[in-house]
Simulated assay, not measured.
Amino acid sequence: MHSDENIHIGFLIFPGFPMACLTSMIEPLRAANEIVGRDVFAWSLISEDGNRVEASARVGFDPHMALSNVEALNQLYLLSDPSSQFADRQNSNGKLRKLARHGTTIGAISGGVFPLARSGLLDGHAASVHWCYAAAFAEEFPDFTQSTDVISIDARRLTASGAAAAFDLSLHLIENAVGAGVATEVACWFQHPMMRGQGVPQRKPTFAAESTNDMLPRIVRDAIAMFTDHLEDPLNIADVAREVGVSVRQLERVFQNTTGRTPLVYYRSLRMHKARQLLLYGNYTISEVSTAVGYASSFTLIKNYTEVFGIHPKEDRKKVNMFRAGNNRVAPLA
């Protein structure tokens, strides 16, 4: 539906937020304003306390206002690291809920789905979660509906999985406000190849290969799907081969040709990537992480983790904690 009214969008930024997600939202809106010759969109940067916020790229941003001073917005998007928490959770979450009650559409980009889910405002809604955060999100919010699409629009909850998806979401907002023609022109301005909407799945990298999951042969895709569904209770490779309708030898040959790894090594990599998500973005002990990816002992997890990532899991966690802001939750080292 087209409108001549100004659409005011707020971006609530947390320390360590991904800067690309912010610019990917704002730049298309700015271009749309230029193309139509009027300010269809306006935007404000918001932080919890109104103070300067440093992005993950160590670039500082000066917000226009504190969250407590926000009066009315058409839309508000949270941008953050997955570990981000409000310093004053009760009042800040209460403010978000008040804005939602008064008609503000609430959304999140990339890691911003975590503090949004913690606020309670995603209850009963689907959310787009970046594939690299999916395991940590599912572990913390097991009852939430997690979408693997690049963007999710569920009633008045809008979420985008990452920076490129944020650009797509902005194009969607532009199309709704001033038409598909302007949205297409904006996309062409930035040489954005296509506007992706709901129903378009995220592309995931194939470990150790120059490909993505959607480029793989059916046999390999089906096997990976089974692996992904059984990270906590590992399957026997022979059982997987039987389920996808090939011999173990054939499965190994196709896997080696397309991913550069055997099915067993690839399966282990999937389990280690889930383990890394839980270690870096969760509050779990190494023992708890071991159980979550199907290991009876922490010793085996540590050995495999070090082989895959070249660093001990405790050192990996220490490294990421060094860059977290003081108000963010720091994961334990036990």
Rank of each mutant, 00 (worst) to 15 (best):
G260M: 03
M322C: 07
E185D: 12
E27S: 09
S287P: 00
K274N: 11
G124N: 06
R253S: 14
S170T: 02
H130S: 09
P15M: 07
T104E: 04
T300N: 12
A331H: 04
M194I: 11
S298C: 10
N327W: 01
R261S: 10
A135F: 07
M1P: 08
F14N: 01
L171N: 03
A241G: 12
G245Y: 09
N91T: 14
V129C: 02
G197C: 08
G294T: 10
L78I: 15
H64W: 07
F227D: 03
L301P: 01
S68G: 08
V320P: 00
G282F: 06
T262C: 00
D49W: 01
Q85M: 11
A334E: 13
K95V: 04
V254E: 12
P115C: 07
D149I: 02
V59R: 11
G103Q: 07
A325W: 08
S83N: 13
F255M: 14
G16C: 05
A138S: 15
T291E: 13
P201C: 04
R324V: 05
V293W: 01
R118D: 14
V70L: 09
V186P: 00
T259S: 11
A223E: 10
G37D: 09
F114I: 05
F299W: 09
G162I: 01
A296M: 08
L280E: 10
V289I: 10
L333C: 06
M1Y: 12
V244S: 04
A225V: 10
T104W: 05
R249G: 10
A166R: 01
D214S: 12
C21Q: 04
C21F: 02
L22A: 08
F86H: 03
F207L: 10
I109K: 00
G120P: 02
A180K: 14
G94T: 08
V220Y: 03
R221H: 09
I46P: 01
S152H: 05
R261P: 00
A155G: 05
G112K: 06
V254C: 02
E48F: 01
M195I: 15
F41I: 07
T262R: 11
D143K: 14
E315C: 00
V59G: 02
R218V: 13
T285H: 09
A241C: 12
R30Q: 11
